[in-house]
Structures are given as structure tokens and as C-alpha cells.
Simulated assay, not measured.
Amino acid sequence: MNEIASIILPAIPQTLILVFVSSFISVLLGMPLGILLTLTRPGGLKENPKLYSVIDSIVNFLRSVPFIILMLILIPVMRFIVGKSYGTAATVIPLSVAAIPFFGRLMETYLSQVDNGILEAAKSMGSNNKQIIFNVLIPEAMPQIINGITLVIINIIAYSAMAGAIGGGGLGEVAVRYGYTYKRTDVLWIAVIIIVALVQVIQLLGNFLEKKVDKK
């Protein structure tokens, strides 16, 4: 039992660092990306078809690349930034790159679904675009945004487990190295149970916060 604990316990904080640092970066950069897509899309507050087309194509490209391949593509970037292409710090980079366009697209979807009547009312009261974004669009879409953040975190948990196949650290690497390579099914199942439990906790917390801010 002590042996299993010595394998599993160090991997738990690694997974938490991978997930929450990557999630923070993804939301921090994905939110303005989603706002930009919403503003420049056809019918947006600052409609710009050319700019929207370029950003839309980049988002679609990044979302279509399988995560394992994205990790391989970003190996030179990981080596440049952190000095190596494996481990917790390095894996934060591809996790963030994979999740930023995903959250950006979710933000665009949620913001564009806000009732036009509310937007027209804000415009008639003299609100500028900045005020409409931060005082109308984001507050109105906040329950959906929280749901989107929950989805991002859960996806990153899945990606982090996948990253373990090529030395990404955390519970994913423990599951692959000890559970699969060394045929330690006990370690494999404990790692899987912890990952599933983490997903369930995040989903429950996300559901709670979504209902908390939903005033409808």
C-alpha cells in the first residue's frame, strides 16, 4: 500500500497544477478571443468579415488538430519556453493552446445568443460597445459562460490524462507507465478513479455556480 501511495500521491498535485493553470490561461485568453469573434462576426457590433474570417480559420484549425499531434507539433515551443518537452510545466503549453480556441468558440456562441432586444435597449440608452460587452452581454451570458468554463476544465482533465502517454506528468503518466507498461492494474484503476472523481467534483461545482448566477 505504501508503494502505491508513493506512486499515486505525487501525481495528484501535478494533475491539479496541469488542470488549473491551463484552465486559468485558457479562460484568460479565450474570453477576449470569444469577445473579438462576437464583435467582428456578421451582424456583430463591429462587423469585420475579413478579420473574422482569419480568426475563425485559425480557431477552426487549432480545434481540428488531435491533441497528441498538437503536443508533438509544440515540442519546439515547449523546449524554447521551459527548456524541455516533458513534465508538468511543459505540458501546460499544449493544454492551453488546445483549450483557448475551444473556450473562445464557446464564448462566441454564448454571447451571440443574448437576446437582441436587450442589446437594442442598451444601444437606445446610449451605451457604447465596451459598456454593452461588459454590462450586458457578459452578465446575461454568465450562466452559460460558467458552464463553458466547466467544460473547458473537464476537457483539460481528459487532455492531461492523454498527455501522460508522452511524459506529460500527473495521473495520466502514472496510468500509462505503471498501469499499462508495468502491468500494474491496481495503480491503473486508482488513477482512473481519482480522475473520474475529479471530473465529477468539477461538474457538480460548475452546476452549482451556474444555478447560483442564473436569475431567470
Rank of each mutant, 00 (worst) to 15 (best):
M71K: 06
L45H: 08
I55R: 07
G104F: 01
I73E: 04
L37V: 06
I100G: 04
G43S: 05
I153D: 04
S85A: 15
V82A: 06
V82F: 14
L151R: 08
I157K: 00
S23N: 01
K84I: 10
E47A: 13
K50V: 14
I132R: 11
K50A: 13
Y110H: 12
A89E: 15
I25E: 01
L106A: 01
S124V: 12
A121M: 12
F24L: 15
I154T: 13
L18Y: 01
V19H: 01
S26F: 06
S85P: 04
L119A: 05
I153M: 08
L29V: 12
P42A: 10
Y52V: 05
I132W: 11
T91N: 10
P101Y: 01
P32E: 04
Q113D: 15
L72S: 10
L95R: 02
N129L: 05
T109E: 12
A99F: 10
L39D: 09
L106V: 07
N60Y: 06
F134L: 13
K84E: 14
V114Q: 03
I58M: 10
P32Q: 09
L119W: 04
T40N: 06
I73F: 14
S64Q: 09
L137K: 00
S112Q: 13
I156F: 02
N116L: 12
G117S: 07
K130P: 00
S124Y: 08
S23W: 00
I132A: 12
L74H: 09
G83M: 09
L36K: 11
V114G: 04
I55Q: 04
G104L: 02
S85G: 15
F20T: 08
K46I: 12
Y86W: 13
F67V: 11
Y86L: 13
K123A: 12
M78G: 08
N129T: 15
K46E: 14
K46M: 14
L16V: 15
D56P: 02
V92K: 02
